[in-house]
Simulated scan of single mutants.
Amino acid sequence: MKYPVIVVPFLKVSGMALFPFILVGRRIDINDPVLINHEKIHLRQQAELLVLPFYLLYLVNYLLNLAVYRNREQAYLNIIFEREAYRHEADGLYLQSRKWFNWRRYF
């Protein structure tokens, strides 16, 4: 599925999935297949959870990780949704074979 990619110059991160859009900080990032695939994985996760529950689970998982790791970067990298996305971001075919709710494997 094709998702609209929007350049948001003031974005503090390289990319962000905000269903149904992919936001990137720089125009050049539109052509970064790894970044775009990472965000597409997040869009699939969001669709599976009907969007709002995704954001709630994401936030709760981050806060729990923050209590465990006491480090913002480690807390972020260990969010279950991020673990799946980072693990498969370089595999351009991943979404074609990905099973529904596969993010559950990263608990």
Rank of each mutant, 00 (worst) to 15 (best):
R83W: 00
Y69M: 03
A90V: 07
Q96V: 10
N78T: 03
E84P: 01
I30C: 07
N37K: 11
Y3H: 12
V8Y: 07
F101D: 13
F21C: 08
V7L: 07
D91R: 04
D32R: 11
R105F: 00
L23N: 00
A47Q: 14
G92P: 01
L18G: 05
N37L: 04
R27L: 14
L66H: 03
V7A: 07
V7Q: 02
N31T: 00
L93E: 12
N71I: 05
I28T: 14
K2E: 15
G25R: 12
P53Y: 12
I80Q: 13
F54P: 02
Y62N: 02
Y69V: 05
L18S: 10
Y55I: 06
I79G: 00
V34Q: 10
Y94C: 02
V7P: 01
L56V: 14
E48D: 11
I80M: 15
N61K: 00
L66I: 04
R87E: 12
A90H: 15
E73M: 12
D29A: 10
Y62F: 15
Y58C: 04
L93I: 02
G25E: 07
D91W: 04
L77I: 05
L49F: 09
I6A: 05
V8E: 07
L11R: 00
L11N: 01
Q46K: 14
R105G: 02
G15A: 09
S14N: 15
D91G: 04
Y86D: 05
L95H: 03
F101N: 13
A75K: 02
E73N: 11
I30D: 00
F54I: 10
L50P: 04
I22T: 02
F81D: 05
V34S: 14
L35K: 07
S14P: 12
A75V: 01
